[in-house]
């Protein structure tokens, strides 16, 4: 049976949700095993086991948290050579992208990014599906190298499901970590947490784009979101312009979201953005341009002046709430 490895990032002893999503998928592909590195790795074993990992390779050294990529790449190279897994799955996160790309060069193996599905290929091996052009086209790519291919999977591509009675055996690693080489070190971590619900798990999201015209005008979106108890999102144009911090960005380079309702205000619907939100169950769009591509995705589109419409909408919701 194929051995599927999931690189499981952990935060304070809890696996990131994408790791649990990947383990759930890995159960369909073969025998899942996980690698968890850094302080709290052992504490994450139980949850990884519950989601299907048979074995968790855990190493608690703080260097995995404080030095970017290289310590993890060194250890993964050794582990891959020792155990010979058939497929390496990573979540498409900042840290995993660094590790996966370095590891692919180290091992000389294929790296396939932005995946939303992985399965057995025709005549053996693997086939990886990734959306391109904002999700309008799906490409299937097959690895052509010796050694395990590396696949970076977009968060929320699969739903995480615990498995009845499943538990992992821990293999506690104590290999020496070489930190003598020149490497990027994390000196400080700064949080820019948003108020209200988090984009990742909000049922309703209100997102604003360049059509709002000015950073001050983003308040229209903030007010509407507050009235709905919704999370606030933003397009890349808005984030690049400095109107909102990066943590708000929805899209290719930002977050992938799957809320029940996504309200896009003054967002034209560039591919960069839509790839991150077209999984929403229902999309509502407000834009002054009837030709805006967002209207091709929206369940309800309203062509109009957002400066009038959005405050009206907020007010109407306030009245209904009574």
């Amino acid at each position: 049976m194929a051995r599927i490895w999931v690189y499981a990032e952990t935060v304070e002893g809890k696996p990131k949700s994408v790791a649990l999503e990947l383990l759930t998928k890995a159960r369909d592909l073969g025998e899942p095993e996980a690698v968890a590195l850094g302080p709290g790795a052992s504490a994450a074993v139980e949850s990884l086991g519950k989601h299907g990992a048979r074995v968790v390779y855990a190493h608690e050294d703080p260097a995995f948290r404080d030095v970017l990529a290289s310590p993890a790449v060194d250890l993964l190279e050794k582990l891959v050579q020792k155990h010979g897994p058939d497929l390496l799955l990573f979540g498409m996160t900042y840290d995993s992208r660094d590790i996966a790309s370095r590891l692919s060069a180290r091992l000389g193996t294929a790296l396939i990014a932005n995946a939303t599905d992985v399965g057995p290929g025709q005549g053996g091996g693997w086939a990886v599906v990734s959306p391109i052009f904002g999700g309008s086209t799906l490409v299937t790519t097959v690895p052509r190298t010796q050694g395990p291919p590396i696949v970076l999977v977009r968060p929320k591509a699969f739903a995480a499901q615990p498995l009845e009675g499943s538990a992992a055996r821990v293999e506690t690693l104590t290999d020496a970590v070489d930190t003598s080489r020149p490497a990027p070190r994390v000196l400080k971590r700064e949080k820019e947490e948003a108020q209200g619900p988090r984009l990742d798990d909000a049922a309703v999201i209100v997102s604003g784009g360049r059509g709002l015209g000015s950073p001050e005008n983003f308040k229209l979106v903030d007010d509407l979101a507050a009235q709905l108890g919704a999370a606030v999102g933003a397009s890349r144009a808005v984030v690049d312009a400095g109107w909102k911090p990066y943590a708000f960005q929805v899209g290719q380079t930002g977050k992938t979201v799957k809320p029940t309702v996504y309200i896009a205000v003054g967002i034209s619907g560039a591919m960069q953005h839509t790839v991150g939100m077209k999984g929403a169950r229902t999309i509502i769009a407000i834009n002054k341009d009837p030709e805006a591509p967002i209207f091709k995705l929206a369940d309800l589109g309203v062509v109009g002046d957002l400066n009038r419409l959005v405050p009206q909408l907020t007010e109407e919701l306030r009245k209904r709430k009574g």
């Binding site: 190298t145 091709k296 929206a298 309800l300 309203v302 009038r308």
Partner: peptide
């Protein structure tokens, strides 16, 4: 290291209703 073997249009979202705001939006 890899080869594209297939290309498919993704299942498109069905466009819904688009209305013009005449005060009732």
């Amino acid at each position: 290291t890899q080869e594209v073997v297939d290309l498919q249009p993704a299942q498109a979202r069905k466009a819904g209703r688009v209305i013009e705001d005449k005060g009732e939006g």
